[in-house]
């Protein structure tokens, strides 16, 4: 089947029901998208499908055909950061960092709908992204900075 990731079309030979996560990680070697729980409880595998956040562990490869998939590698790079990544670095959010790809992808999707979120709205948007190191206070600050960057205010 064919699958489009970060603007590049790939021909892959996998079962229809292989989760996109394992297509990305083991077939395409795009390992910025992480495996955490496999049941949509932790959010570390979050990618975008047609611009919206989706958990790659729950999305079957077959259902990703014909859609635009974006991973953390496609959102921005160390040389050309996305505003959310930029804010994450500015606030030094990461501890172990394993959840942060997913956090960042969730936020990049969320801010499209809520360009100026309140604390409560951030809580609704991000409580499904688990961070075992407890970086939540920094994530909150970074989301606000990212939002301001995207609004062109900073």
């Amino acid at each position: 089947m064919q699958i489009t990731v970060n603007g590049v079309q790939h021909e892959i030979d996998v079962e229809d029901d292989m989760p996109l996560l394992w297509v990305l990680r083991d077939e395409l070697k795009l390992t910025g998208t992480k495996y955490g729980c496999g049941i949509a409880q932790c959010g570390v595998c979050t990618v975008h499908m047609d611009g919206l956040a989706v958990r790659a562990c729950q999305l079957r490869a077959g259902d990703a055909q014909g859609r635009q998939i974006t991973t953390i590698e496609g959102l921005g790079t160390p040389e050309a950061l996305h505003a959310v990544q930029d804010a994450w670095i500015e606030h030094q959010v990461a501890q172990c960092g394993y959840c942060q790809s997913g956090q960042i992808m969730s936020v990049a999707s969320f801010l499209k709908f809520k360009p100026n979120p309140t604390d409560e709205e951030i809580d609704f948007a991000l409580s499904s992204n688990l961070c075992r190191c407890g970086t939540y206070p920094r994530i909150r600050e970074a989301v606000k900075t990212a939002a301001a960057k995207l609004r062109g205010e900073v």
């Binding site: 919206l52 729950q58 969730s106 999707s109 969320f110 809520k114 709205e121 609704f124 499904s128």
Partner: peptide, 8 residues
Amino acid sequence: ESVMCSTC
């Protein structure tokens, strides 16, 4: 408004 149900 926050997380689309379709996310998961």
